[in-house]
């Protein structure tokens, strides 16, 4: 009797929420297909894929795909490039964005403040394809601006930029910073605007100069935002911007040593070389290490500032 009442009550309780559950169905269904099914597809990396017998029917390969991958020189190169560029981007990007945010906050004229803000965010909104045209306009060996308008008037020979690997770590770093510094700068700036001006007034009364104000008030106030943004970037340190490393160097073969990252390697392996075993092994390597890093990074964010944590 009591039990029957209990189930009835529970049924009644859920009935109220049926419309809400139904609302969630399309979105969850999409995530199931777009995200969860490919997660299960990780099994491909542990198989010798034979399309006639399908993924499940193909024979297991154990870890042999991974063995092949890590025996190649590329495994080291793509890991080095992915991590190396990301570390460089995080350090330089953070320092530059904070510096610019502080300067922006110091500008008195409202008009100029707004104009600068508008301009530095512009590159962030342009697609990587258009960015690769902008880079081409600068670096094309026949008609590029650098060869024709800078090197030639200086009496120097033009360079065939797209076949010279030694310059590309600099080029890619400049392009990346150019594209994204405005974005993180805006975030830091939003934090700066929120600082209570009373602190600065008190500091001035105590005779603090501008530099002392920056070191003792501004930077400590930025700390939570900096930690959060940096840790979030550390979490994705095993991923790279495919457009930056594939489109901007125009997929130029001689540059692979300095432009090949895990993402471009997986793409070329899959689409160009049709090597499912190797590229899926590289993909799983990225997914697993990437997941571990995101997880650790988020644990750390939780420790530093709970409200900024993702979970």
């Amino acid at each position: 009797m009591n039990a029957a009442l209990g189930t009835n009550k529970r049924k009644h309780k859920y009935k109220r929420f049926v419309p809400l559950y139904v609302m969630m169905v399309p979105g969850l269904l999409y995530l199931l297909i777009n995200n969860y099914v490919p997660m299960a597809g990780i099994i491909i990396a542990f198989k010798h894929i034979n399309w006639n017998s399908g993924i499940l029917g193909s024979p297991f390969a154990g870890l042999s795909n991974f063995e092949y991958l890590f025996k190649t020189k590329e495994a080291w190169v793509i890991t080095r490039n992915t991590l190396g560029y990301n570390v460089l981007f995080i350090v330089l990007g953070t320092v530059i964005s904070i510096g610019v945010a502080i300067l922006l906050n110091e500008i008195r004229s409202k008009f100029w403040k707004k104009s600068y803000q508008t301009v530095i965010l512009l590159p962030y909104l342009i697609s990587m394809v258009i960015v690769s045209y902008l880079v081409f306009a600068m670096l094309s060996s026949e008609s590029g601006f650098v060869n024709n308008s800078i090197l030639e008037p200086l009496g120097l020979d033009g360079l065939t930029w797209y076949t010279e690997p030694k310059y590309w770590p600099f080029i890619l770093t400049i392009v990346h910073i150019w594209k994204v510094f405005g974005y993180s700068c805006i975030i830091y700036y939003a934090t700066l605007v929120g600082i209570d001006r009373g602190y600065y007034e008190a500091a001035v009364i105590d005779g603090a100069n501008r530099w002392q104000q920056i070191v003792n008030i501004t930077l400590p106030a930025l700390k939570p935002t900096v930690i959060t943004l940096v840790l979030l970037q550390v979490g994705t340190i095993f991923y790279s911007d495919f457009g930056l490393f594939y489109q901007v160097p125009m997929d130029s073969g001689p540059l692979y040593d300095v432009t090949n990252t895990i993402d471009t390697y997986v793409y070329r392996g899959l689409i160009k070389l049709n090597d499912v075993g190797m590229s899926s092994a590289a993909g799983v390597y990225q997914s697993l290490v990437g997941f571990t890093l995101v997880y650790i990074a988020n644990r750390l964010v939780t420790r530093f500032s709970k409200e900024n944590a993702l979970f």
């Binding site: 297909i33 777009n34 995200n35 099914v37 490919p38 997660m39 299960a40 597809g41 990780i42 491909i44 990396a45 993924i55 993402d263 997986v266 793409y267 899959l270 689409i271 499912v276 590229s279 899926s280 993909g283 799983v284 990225q286 997914s287 990437g290 997941f291 995101v294 997880y295 988020n298």
Partner: peptide, 12 residues
């Protein structure tokens, strides 16, 4: 946090 990567996604 986690994704299957390009290969399974593309094949699907």
């Amino acid at each position: 946090l986690f994704n299957g990567g390009l290969v399974p996604t593309y094949i699907m």
